[in-house]
């Protein structure tokens, strides 16, 4: 396998489902051989998905003032206390990555990247993306395809 792409989010929480939508876009477009797509509802489900020798790309919604941006995020530069690092499931993305590395340093992917889709605020019980975030989904999928070498 070349890479594992993991979409993080909740479909029933409006723009929070951006990561899931990007995975769906990748599956529609088709990914290169050796690229595996997966989804996780929250960072706690992310940990074991990081245990792979291959490159991992996590795609997640990121709260920012301006919605609809596609952002490359350096995992090691995320402030553990930043909003990205906090989730209802007790862990943030940064914490999930740290836990994976601490628990299984030999098993955890040596190359983990995050592609963020900026959103204004997750909604409750809305099963669609806002237009500005929906418009960013294809761009995020394209960025991921660049990262996996297509």
């Amino acid at each position: 396998m070349l890479a594992r792409v993991i979409g993080l989010g909740q479909r029933a929480a409006g723009d929070d489902g951006a990561g899931i939508a990007v995975i769906e876009a990748l599956r529609r477009a088709g990914v290169p051989e050796g690229v595996e797509c997966a989804v996780a509802a929250g960072p706690s489900a992310l940990v074991s998905l990081l245990w792979t020798p291959d490159r991992v790309i996590v795609v997640d919604a990121v709260v920012a003032p301006l919605g609809g941006e596609v952002i490359d995020i350096d995992v090691d530069r995320i402030d553990p206390s930043a909003p990205l690092g906090v989730s209802s499931h007790g862990l943030g993305v940064r914490q999930a990555i740290e836990l994976a590395r601490l628990a299984e340093p030999e098993l955890t992917s040596p190359d983990i990247r995050i592609v963020g889709v900026s959103i204004a605020r997750p909604s409750r019980y809305v099963e669609r993306l806002s237009p500005v975030v929906a418009a960013a989904v294809e761009r995020a999928a394209q960025r991921i395809l660049e990262l996996v070498g297509r």
Partner: peptide
């Protein structure tokens, strides 16, 4: 207490 969103500000 709420599982429909994974993000919150702590």
């Amino acid at each position: 207490i709420s599982c429909a969103t994974h993000f919150l500000t702590l």
